[in-house]
Structure formats: structure tokens, C-alpha cells
Nucleic acid binder design. Structure first.
Lengths: 229, 229
DNA sequence: CTAATTTAAGGTTAATTTTACATTTTAATT
DNA sequence: AATTAAAATGTAAAATTAACCTTAAATTAG
């Protein structure tokens, strides 16, 4: 490794898979690229990492610049490094996913972005680069994470009904769950706070609203409690 | 993204956490670096990725060059990209882990490597770069993977006793397991083949030898069977 | 204002899985 | 022949999971 300079010719990027839950469906945020390469293609929000920029922070910056979304915790999923994945040179990319609440679902287009859209995951067609593969890997990460950690709440409004929570799980896992058993399981964990409030304006019996109690979860998790759906 | 050339100034590396199981302990393979940076430090086997080299294949090449190990399936774990993690410039690294059988435990030193050693994970001290952090992340990945996939067998000789398997699990998980329950659980999965052979030369009742049946596992896994310890 | 519609809420039983636990067997060694 | 060391094995209680249906509360339509 005497002369190392020939190695310092790569670029690095981040790509973000932003999941939302809307109209009973899991959606992802995609942008229509305003510049080459892949100008006019739909793509995951992603961009190159600056030379003096921390990788994980870069994911947050890129997401913010392209979509306006801010303060969204992002999880690293996997790094993609086939030789020819980027037409401009050697670019290795790290994929991140994030879960956002419906309140954040009004995403705007920005510079470098012609259009931005929420697309149900089963309607995604060909994306730029290797973004279809990246999406699949994030989806599969989400499916396993949702079963073992209390992250589903991040996709729902602060207060939600148990039915909404169940539909969310059904949408992500692609299975249908027994209503009574689901409720029993979730409520028995004692990580939901009953706000004593009900839905309003629905044409049927209004449901109670619950809220995830992160403090309580943290406390019992330290005592060895394992979240499991 | 009009001029993109300023981005193409990074290097990329891979670092390998190679786990072995020996004398009842989980060990990792470390090398004493023969060149700067961190000359003379113990480190994970790792090196820079060539400009025209696939990332995942690079991990295999680097491992082979530094340790002589070959044909070891490697799993990507995580990518580390703080700004100052490498003294020579901006180097982002991807960590991989692999599990090797005792037969592969005679690792040799090579060029660029002064020494090579298997070190029990609880005896690891200060490593080069951010390798202690990388090791921790691989360890935690191993602990969760071992519970959900039949990978423990990769750390044992082809034929092994149930006690050896149990000790392996106990070493990785750091808990002790009930002998009868462990055997019942493992055998009820029907993924072990009883070779009709027993240990020889032990000063006590010799144990039966078993072998992991990858075909059988694959078949039932497709039918929805989930490996779980 | 009555009936129809729609979703919310809730408990019991059987089946399955998990946990806890102690004795006998088989080889080598002394 | 006695000792030592680990292997092998089954059962009962407890906990968890799975299956299953009726009544309640709101809006809307007639």
C-alpha cells in the first residue's frame, strides 16, 4: 500500500427509501429526476456524499434537500457496490430507510427534482439505477423490523385506533390478522396509552384512540421485554 | 450536479470479522499490520477496494490475500463512514462477517501482515481504525442471526455432537441452555442427520455425531418453516 | 324517527409450545 | 472392580397461541 492515491477516485452516495402509510397502503416517496443521469426517470431520493460529510448525516441532508423532510430518523440497510451501477463512474451507495407519519406526507418538489410522489409499493415500476433492488432490500428489512421492534407507530399519527394499527401490520406483512388476538397481544404489552378520546365524525361506532408510550417501552425493554408481533 | 468530478475523490474499503469456535470460545481472526497507517497495530483483516472491483467480491479477495482463507461466504453487515476514520483520506468501509470451521483455523501470515492470530472475543483490546466498533456491530449481528438461521453449523466440523452445538450457542448467546430442551428443539426440526457414528477415544460415554442436512432445511424452509432457537 | 349500515369492542376454550427438572447409560481410567 | 465423566432420555405444569361470534355505538338513507 505504498502509493494509495489511485484508490481515491470513487464517489459515494446515499439512497433513501421513505415509507409512509396512507389509504391503507404502504407507499414510498419517489422523485422524478431533473438532471442526468437518468433524467426523467423515477428514482429513490438519493445523491452523492460530500467529501467532508459523515455518511449517516449525509442521508439526512440529501433527504431534506430533495424532499423537504426533516428530523426523520434513518436506518442504514445495506450498501450496493457493483461496478457498473452508476454511469458517471464508480459510485458505491448506501441505502437507508425511514418511516414517516401521514402529517409529513405533503412532500414538495425542489431543485433537481421535477416531481415528487407517494407511490404504493405494489405499483412501483422501473426506477433509475439499481433502485428497484435497493427498494426490495429495504422492504424486506422493514418487514422483519416491524415484527421485532415497536416502529409501526412511526407510520401512524400520534393518536391512532387499534384497527388502524392492525391494518398497518397487515399491509406490511401481507397477511391478515385475527382482530381479537391482535388487540389482546398489543394491549397486553402495556406500551399503549389510552387517551380517553374517541374518533369523531365516523359513520359507525367510534374507536378509542391510543398513543405509543415510548418511555414505558424503554423501561420494560431494559428489563428484557421483547416486542414481538 | 453539473460538475461531479470533485466527488470522485474517495476510497472504499472492506473489513472482515471472521468468527471461529475453538476451545469452547468464539474467536476472531486479527492481523498485526505490517504497514502504515497503524503499522504494528492489531486490526481486522481489511483493505481498499479496487476501482473496478465489485464490493462484495472485494471482501472475499481481501480476506484471501491477507489470511489465505478462501471460499468463505461473507455477509455484509454495515457501512462506516465517519469523516476522520482513516488517516490517509476519506475512506468509507463496509464490514462483513463470516463463520469458518475449525478446519480452516490454521491461518497463515502473508505479505503486508506481520502476524495473524485467533483471539477470543472477550480478550480483544484496542484495534486499529474504528475496528472495535465494527467488531461490536458484527458481534451483535451474529447474535441475532444465530437465533434465526441455521448458521451455527458453519462454525463446527461437518460432524458434531449435540453437546458441541449447545456449547456453541451458549458461547455466542452468553446464556446457558437446558440440555434436554435444547436437544428436543433441535431434533424436532428434523434438519440433522444422525450419521450412526459415535465419538471415539473420549473418557466417557461417546456421543452420537450429527450432520446438518442443508437440503432438508431448504425444502422445509420453502414450506414456511422458521428456524428458531 | 326508524331501519340499515358500518366498524368497534370484548372472552373462552382447545391446542400447542415452553419450561423445569433427575436418573440411567456407556465408555475410559485407576 | 470401582471411579469418573459426559451422554441420553420423558413427563407434568405453565404459558402462549389460535380459533371463533355477538353486542355496541355512531352515521346515513328512507
Amino acid at each position: 500500500m505504498s502509493d494509495v492515491s489511485s484508490f481515491f477516485k470513487m464517489a459515494f452516495s446515499v439512497d433513501c427509501v421513505i415509507f409512509g402509510f396512507d389509504e391503507g397502503k404502504i407507499k414510498i416517496l419517489i422523485i422524478k429526476r431533473g438532471e442526468d443521469p437518468f433524467k426523467g426517470f423515477w428514482a429513490l431520493p438519493g445523491n452523492l456524499v460530500y467529501l467532508d460529510e459523515d455518511l449517516n448525516l449525509s442521508a439526512k441532508r440529501v433527504l431534506h434537500e430533495l424532499t423537504g423532510l426533516q428530523n426523520v430518523p434513518m436506518q442504514q440497510v445495506s450498501t450496493f457496490g457493483t461496478i457498473d451501477r452508476h454511469p458517471l463512474g464508480r459510485v458505491i451507495t448506501t441505502a437507508y430507510y425511514a418511516l414517516v407519519k401521514p402529517a409529513a406526507l405533503h412532500a414538495y418538489a425542489s431543485s433537481h427534482v421535477e416531481q415528487i410522489a407517494w407511490l404504493p409499493i405494489d405499483e412501483v415500476e422501473e426506477l433509475a439505477f439499481d433502485h428497484n433492488i435497493i427498494l426490495e432490500s429495504c422492504l424486506s428489512k422493514l418487514r422483519s423490523a416491524i415484527k421485532n421492534r415497536p416502529i409501526g407507530f412511526d407510520l401512524l399519527p400520534k393518536q391512532f385506533t387499534l384497527s388502524a394499527l392492525q391494518k398497518l401490520y397487515e399491509a406490511i406483512l401481507g397477511t391478515s390478522l385475527d382482530k381479537r388476538n391482535f388487540r389482546k397481544k398489543i394491549l397486553s404489552m402495556e406500551i399503549l396509552e389510552d387517551k380517553g378520546v374517541t374518533q369523531e365524525g365516523v359513520a359507525h361506532r367510534p374507536a378509542k384512540l391510543f398513543q405509543f408510550d415510548a418511555e414505558k417501552y424503554k423501561a420494560i425493554a431494559e428489563d428484557g421485554f421483547l416486542f414481538q408481533i
